[in-house]
């Protein structure tokens, strides 16, 4: 039986690692839930942002937060441009899956052409910093990520609930035609939301650059688990996405600490299936 320290540490690591799942799930959940577009290129955009953070940091010695300040607006515009294509070709849910998959593949090739297929690692002194709390260690970077993800998820949740635009978006997500008949300009809002989704990908990307290993094929490494997180967290629910991310992260970590690390990849889908079978009211 593992010790309490080991379990506690695994829980901390897992919840914090789950923050990354949640952050990646955020933009995906918004576009899937509110625009009915499944944006697979979300992962590729996040990695593009990660590579840009890496490039700015290693070649030009730009601090990651300044890099993010530069990359996020650019990604916002890319998100809008991407939606322009969706709008122009009247892309539906299924077609969006195929089209954004192609986007992602193209981005993967482009990243490989410029940065090669080799592993890249953005070494910063933050990457191994941690705070000691009793017998536990809390990694600083992951903590920062979770705080950023928390602020974004909470802010987006409030925005969707409290503002006119947010409520209109939710109304349009439920029934776009009826919402339009009540004066909701769904198209304009969709552009805004697409931009936001891409901007969130950029923020996730900055943290990916600091925390993870960069390789073009890594774009696909997060796909399965983040999809599970989006579904468990309920489509279009930002707080749900973050909490589901942390739940999955913690479950994976506990499984690795108590049983076999090799079980970790099975955990996210087991949790997903268990929750779908349980079918709780909040899902």
């Amino acid at each position: 039986m593992p010790s309490a320290t080991l379990l506690g540490q695994a829980l901390i690591s897992g919840v914090l690692a789950g923050g990354m799942y949640g952050l990646l799930a955020l933009g995906l959940s918004l576009s899937w839930g509110l625009l009915r577009l499944v944006n697979l290129s979300h992962f590729a955009l996040a990695f593009l942002a990660a590579y840009l953070t890496y490039e700015l940091g290693t070649t030009y010695h730009v601090a990651p937060w300044w890099a993010a300040a530069m990359i996020v607006p650019v990604m916002f515009l890319i998100g809008i441009a991407q939606h322009w294509l969706f709008d122009k070709f009247k892309v539906n849910e299924l077609a969006s899956l195929l089209i954004t998959f192609s986007f992602a593949v193209i981005l993967e090739v482009a990243i490989q052409l410029y940065w090669t297929a080799d592993y890249r690692r953005f070494e910063t002194h933050y990457s191994t910093m941690s705070i000691k709390a009793g017998p536990f260690y809390i990694p600083v970077l992951e903590l920062a990520l979770c705080m950023v993800a928390g602020v974004l998820a909470w802010g987006t949740w409030l925005w969707l609930r409290k503002t006119y635009v947010g409520k209109a978006l939710r109304a349009a997500a439920e029934d776009a035609d009826i919402a339009a008949a009540y004066g909701v300009d769904h198209k304009k809002l969709a552009y805004l939301l697409s931009g936001m989704g891409a901007a969130y990908a950029a923020i996730a990307g900055t943290f990916i650059a600091l925390i993870a290993t960069l390789a073009p094929t890594q774009i696909w490494a997060w796909l399965g688990v983040v999809f599970a997180v989006v579904i468990i967290g309920r489509l279009g629910n930002p707080l749900g996405a973050l909490l589901a991310g942390m739940l999955i992260g913690a479950s994976e970590s506990i499984a690795m600490a108590v049983f076999e690390p090799a079980w970790a990849p099975v955990v996210s889908f087991s949790v997903l299936i268990a929750i779908l079978l349980w079918d709780p009211e909040w899902l």
Partner: peptide
């Protein structure tokens, strides 16, 4: 999926 009040204020 919206509350009664949200139905009214969204539009």
């Amino acid at each position: 999926s919206l509350s009664v009040q949200e139905n009214l204020t969204a539009v």
